[in-house]
Each structure stands twice: as C-alpha cells, then as structure tokens.
Design a protein around this nucleic acid. Structure first.
Length: 114
DNA sequence: TGATTGACCAACT
DNA sequence: CAGTTGGCCAATC
C-alpha cells in the first residue's frame, strides 16, 4: 500500500484546499483545471478516498455542476455536508445550493497563473 | 487480464 | 423532455 498519494489526487486535493471559505466549486471545473475535462469522475474518485489521506480537505465545497450535493452520502455524516455549507453562509435546500452561480469559484480562473 | 463501476459532463436520440 | 451513449482514468471484482 503506497504511502504516497497519486499525483492526480494531490492536484485535486490542492485545488479543493484552495477553495475559499463560503465558495464552492464543481468536479468538472477541477477536472478542467487539471486539463482533463472528461475526467470529472476521477475527481469524484479522488474525493471518495480523500478522508483516507487528508482529513483537512473541505470536500463539502465540491458539488456537481448543478450545485447538487451528490456526494453527501459519502461523508461520515451526510448531514454534515449541508451543515458545513450552511455554516459558511451557503444556503442549501433539497440538497441543492441556492444562488450556486454566486458562490461558484472557478479554479481555472483563480489559479490560472498558479 | 477483461469487465464493471464510479461523489461527472455533454451530446445525442 | 427523458433516457441513452460516449468519454475520460482509476480502482475493484
């Protein structure tokens, strides 16, 4: 079992860790930032095991392109994801982020020269 | 080693 | 408008 994290995972974690408080991003945006637009599923895979490698990654700030909390069931406590978002002034109704566009944080733009 | 699946997305039917 | 398909890559069976 490798003690080192896969490069792809590292990149995903780094991007997620750079998401400011009160902002959210999407799987597709991260994949696009990594230059692999079609690999959004890999971002999901990376986050699936995120808690096994890094427990300090705000995975609750990553949702699908609809602003839907598709990954909440993969949290230790599904309610925690929504709770954390609401704790950051992000309103969530019916597993969906209100004013998602307003809270959207695009790594491609924010980290373009990073 | 081949087949299947997965916290996705976009295009097509 | 809803369901299907293709694509991308890694992990599991």
């Amino acid at each position: 079992m490798p003690t080192r994290i896969k490069d792809f995972y590292e990149l995903v974690y780094e991007v997620v860790a750079c998401v400011p408080k009160g902002k959210v991003t999407t799987y597709g945006a991260i994949a696009e930032y990594l230059g692999q637009k079609g690999s959004a599923r890999l971002v999901g895979w990376a986050l699936n095991a995120v808690h096994q490698h890094r427990t300090d990654i705000p995975a609750h700030r990553v949702v699908n392109r609809n602003g839907l909390l598709t990954g909440k069931h993969h949290f230790p406590n599904p309610n925690q994801m929504q709770q954390l978002l609401e704790n950051e002034k992000i309103k969530v109704v019916d597993n969906q982020i209100i004013n998602f566009e307003k809270h959207f944080w695009n790594p491609v733009i924010e980290l373009r020269n990073h």
